[in-house]
């Protein structure tokens, strides 16, 4: 996973630059995620690691599957990846592309995990607070996890703010255990 990220970095940067030139960030993101899904597929994984399949065959297969959903430059990216045998890095490329895209659009994705569904007012409070904190536009998604008992966990990338009852109980347990 580590290595793939390192491998993916230049490809993601190149794809992003290209997408920006074409002014088609959304389309590129869609294409890359589709390719990532293709590569993640179990059958496709088997093909990717099968030594009997030639590089040529692998490349043709992916392009055939993706078919009409890729534009010319994206097809070229797949070819380049195939040439250097880096097709397995496609999911990482897609993830990094999204990160670059979010960065460029000054947008941060915030995941709120709560015990109960957030109402509009609470959602607004959290959105405002996060906008203040990250100085970015906030895209908020809400997930429900009954195990939290009460409160929320707010997650934005690596940053986690835990104000759930479960989190506090855990901290208290640890404090008492020394």
């Amino acid at each position: 996973m580590d290595d793939l990220n390192t491998v993916a970095r230049p490809y993601a940067a190149a794809a992003f630059a290209q997408a920006k030139e074409e002014s088609q960030l959304d389309l590129w993101s869609e294409m890359l995620h589709f390719l990532a899904d293709v590569v993640r597929d179990a059958d496709m994984q088997a093909v990717l690691v099968n030594p009997k399949v030639t590089d040529e065959q692998r490349l043709t297969l992916i392009i055939d599957v993706a078919g009409g959903r890729l534009n010319a430059t994206a097809t070229n990216l797949v070819k380049t990846l195939g040439q250097f045998r880096r097709l397995a890095a496609l999911p990482a490329v897609a993830a990094q592309f999204d990160r670059l895209k979010a960065e460029a659009e000054e947008r941060v994705e915030v995941e709120v995990i709560s015990a109960y569904k957030l109402n509009a007012k609470h959602q607004k409070v959290i959105e405002d607070a996060m906008r203040e904190r990250f100085k970015r536009d906030v895209v908020l998604t809400n997930h429900i996890d009954r195990d939290l008992l009460a409160g929320v966990i707010i997650r934005a990338g690596d940053h986690v703010i835990d104000i759930s009852a479960r989190g506090r109980l855990k901290a208290l347990t640890q404090e008492l255990m020394g």
């Binding site: 690596d158 986690v160 703010i161 835990d162 104000i163 208290l172 404090e175 008492l176």
Partner: peptide, 22 residues
Amino acid sequence: LIKKKIENFDMGAEARTEGTVV
């Protein structure tokens, strides 16, 4: 002692960065 510990327990929100063991 346990009661005192619970009383003094800091209930502030935890804001931290997280990671995953690879």
